[in-house]
Simulated scan of single mutants.
Amino acid sequence: MKAHDIWLAGTGVYLPASRYVAQSDGTAPASTLNRTNNRRTRVAIAGDISAPDMALTAARRALAAARAHPADVALLLYASVWHQGPDGWGPHHYLQHHLGLDHSLALEVRGGCTGTFGAIDLSIGYLNDRSTAETALVIASDNFGTKLVDRWCMGPLSGAVGDGAAAVLLSRTGGLARILSSAGTTFSEMEEVYRGDEPLFPPPVTEGRYLDFGARAAAFQRRAMREGSWLRLITDHRAHVQEVVEEALADAEIGRGDIRKVLVNTMPESTAKDYLDSFGFTLEQSSWAHTEALGHLGAGDHFVALHEMLAAGALRPGDRVLLTGFSPGITYKAMVIEITMADPS
C-alpha cells in the first residue's frame, strides 16, 4: 500500500530505569539459565507500574514532541500483547479518559508483536477518509511482570521480554518522518505454532496455566515432522518474510540499497542475524544494538527503536528506514518511512 501525505508527527516512550540481568545470582530461575546457555540477558523491568500508566506517559510525550493538543486527535488505537488490567475493562478507554479524548474514537488492537503496524494501517485509512480528521494516536504498552510468564525465556528463539511503552502521533500535515508504504501478509497455517496442544477452552490463563511458547512450538514441530510438512512450512515462512519486505520496498519505489536502517523486533543476537539475512540485511544495518538491553517490548519494539535512534543521532533527514517484523498467526508486516526531522522532541 502506498501512503499518501501521512506523517509520523511525534514519538514518545516510557522505558523503566531498571535493567536486570538473567544470571546465576538468583534473578532468573535455573531452568531459564539452562535454556539461555547462561548468557547475560538484560531487560527493562517496570515493577508495579501498569502498562496503561506507562502508555499514558508515552502518549503525553508524543503529543508534546509533535506540539499537538489532545483536541487535535481524532483516533486513538492501543496495541498490547499481555494482560493490561481488570478483565472486561478497556485500557484504551483509560487512556481516552486521562488524555481528554472523549471526542475521539478509541479502540484496542490485538495484533501481537506487529499490532502497531496494523494500528497505523487503520489510522491511515481513517485519516484519508475523513476530511475533518487531522491526527491519530497509536500506542503500545506491556508489563510482563506477572506470575504466569517467564520473562527471561518465552521460547527457544524468542529471548527475554521487557516492559515499556511507545506512542506515535500520525498527521496529515507533516512531521518527523513521512510514511512511504505499508505492506502485510499472513500464513494462517502457522497459528498452530503458537497454539500447540493447548485447548481452546477453557482459556489456559483462567486455570492458572503457564504461558510457554517453547513447549507449544515443540509440540507443533513434532507433529509437522511426523506429517512430513516441517520443511515446507519453514520454507514458506521464510518466503513470507521476504515477500512482505519486497512489497513495501516496491510500493515505496526504492530498492534495498536505498535503505539506511532496518528496525526489527528485539530478539537474541543469533536469531536477529538469521532473520535479517533472510531478506538481505545485516545486524549492523539494524536497530538491534539500540534496543537489545531492553528485551522484546511486545508491540512497542519498532517505535521505541525509532525514538531511541533519532535521539542518538543514528537517523538523519533523508534517510529511508524499513520497519519489519512478524507476530503469532503468523502476520508479517513491513513499512518504509523517510526521515524529515532529526530530533524526536
Rank of each mutant, 00 (worst) to 15 (best):
Met1Leu: 12
Met1Ala: 11
Lys2Ala: 11
His4Lys: 14
Gly12Thr: 04
Val13Lys: 00
Val13Arg: 00
Val13Phe: 00
Ser18Ala: 13
Ala28Arg: 00
Leu33Ser: 09
Asn37Tyr: 09
Val43Trp: 00
Ala44Gln: 02
Ile45His: 01
Ala46Asp: 10
Asp48Ala: 10
Ala64Trp: 00
Ala64Glu: 11
Ala65Asn: 12
Ala66Met: 01
His69Asp: 13
Val73His: 02
Gly85Asp: 07
Trp89Glu: 15
Gly90Asn: 14
Pro91Lys: 06
His93Arg: 11
Tyr94Phe: 13
His103Met: 08
Leu105Phe: 09
Ala106Ile: 01
Leu107Ser: 10
Gly112Trp: 00
Thr114Asp: 05
Phe117Tyr: 09
Tyr126Gly: 06
Ser131Arg: 12
Ala136Ser: 09
Phe144Thr: 10
Lys147Ala: 15
Val149Trp: 05
Arg151Ser: 08
Arg151Met: 14
Gly155Asp: 13
Gly162Ala: 12
Asp163Trp: 09
Leu170Pro: 02
Gly174Thr: 11
Ala177His: 02
Ile179Arg: 01
Leu180Ile: 05
Thr186Ser: 12
Arg195Pro: 00
Arg195Asn: 03
Pro199Leu: 06
Gly208His: 08
Leu211Met: 05
Arg222Leu: 15
Ser229Trp: 05
Ser229Tyr: 04
Trp230Tyr: 15
Leu231Asp: 15
Leu233Glu: 10
Thr235Leu: 12
Gln242Arg: 14
Val245Glu: 04
Ala248Arg: 02
Ala250Phe: 01
Gly257Gln: 15
Gly257Val: 10
Arg260Asn: 15
Asn265Ser: 14
Ala272Asp: 11
Asp274Met: 12
Leu276His: 09
Gly280Asn: 13
Leu283Tyr: 06
Ser286Trp: 10
Ser287Asp: 06
Ala293Asn: 11
His296Ser: 04
Gly298Met: 07
Gly300Ile: 07
His302Arg: 12
Ala311Phe: 01
Leu322His: 07
Leu323Glu: 01
Pro328Leu: 03
Thr331Leu: 10
Lys333Val: 09
Ile337Ala: 08
Met341Gly: 12
